[in-house]
Amino acid sequence: MISVVGFGSLLSEVSARETVPALENYRLVRVPGYRRVFDKVGIVFISRHGESPDSLELASCSTEPDPACEIVAAQFECSEEDFLQLYEREHRYRWVEVETRHYLNGEVTVGRMCTGYADLDYRLNKCVTEAEYHRRVGQYYQGPLWRKDILPNPRYLGFCLQAAASQGADVLDNFLDSSFTADGRSLRDYLAARPELMTESPVSYSYR
């Protein structure tokens, strides 16, 4: 079995079981030394959901090292076969092994988590040929995948907020305060400046 750490929509156990139906031992964990950042172009927003490749609201959630931060995430185990399917779905990320601490009892384990990549590294190490890159990315989108000028996709952001809220107010607060836009704003501050995005999710946000 392979242990997986999910930090976005997989914070919802329902969503996680839709993605990996045979998962085992779903639980909340803390991942010290990382923060979330919305800086990766979500190709699926273009290929399946009709977003314009010229839009700035294309960002999906990734992670990056930050020694001053800690994210609350979900962890579960799955078979090698299920992990390969998940790996394919999250092909544009880099997978790393991280130390986790059980949300309730502090038990320390390790798991595999998606984190940020670089465009050149992705092309060289995960797309063997230009034809493969075109199949996965180029037929839908021509620019860089990792950007500092993009904003969270509103529909996807709503899913992530609902997932965090489903785990309680403390987990939602962690999501708001340990998540950042590509240009460095906390998600709480970003939503305070964009109150119209609250209509994308039934979650009631609190600002402090």
Score class of each variant (00 low, 15 high):
L157S: 09
F175P: 01
Q139G: 03
R208V: 07
G6R: 01
G50R: 12
E88Q: 11
A73H: 00
Y122Q: 13
Y93T: 06
L176M: 12
P152E: 07
Q162R: 06
A74E: 01
E70C: 11
Y117E: 15
E107Y: 08
Y156M: 14
N125V: 08
A22T: 15
Q75F: 02
F180N: 00
Q142K: 06
L23G: 04
A164G: 07
L86V: 14
A59F: 04
E107A: 15
R101S: 15
D189L: 10
C61P: 00
Y93D: 06
L191D: 09
R185H: 07
A22I: 06
F45E: 08
Y141R: 10
I46A: 13
R123G: 04
Y207Q: 08
F38C: 04
I43G: 05
A131Q: 12
G106Y: 08
V31Q: 03
A165H: 06
R136S: 08
R123I: 13
R135D: 11
V96T: 05
S178V: 04
E18V: 04
E132C: 07
F83E: 12
A131P: 01
Q85Y: 12
L86M: 12
E97S: 06
I43A: 06
E90R: 13
V37K: 12
V128F: 08
A163C: 04
Y26N: 00
T199A: 15
G42D: 07
L124D: 09
S12D: 01
Q85S: 14
E107Q: 12
C69V: 00
P21R: 05
D149Y: 11
Q75G: 02
D189Q: 12
A182R: 05
V5T: 04
K148D: 12
V72M: 00
D39A: 13
F83I: 09
L197Q: 14
R136C: 09
Y117R: 13
Q162I: 06
T100H: 02
Y205Q: 07
R36H: 02
A118V: 13
Y34T: 02
I71P: 04
L56G: 11
L176R: 00
R27Q: 09
D173G: 01
F38W: 15
G138D: 09
R188K: 09
Y103A: 08
Y34I: 04
Q139I: 11
R30V: 03
I46Y: 12
A16N: 00
G111C: 02
G8H: 01
L28G: 04
G158P: 09
G158Y: 15
A169I: 05
V98E: 01
R188L: 04
P144V: 06
N153M: 08
V41A: 09
V44W: 10
V4G: 01
A16S: 13
R35F: 02
R136A: 10
R123M: 13
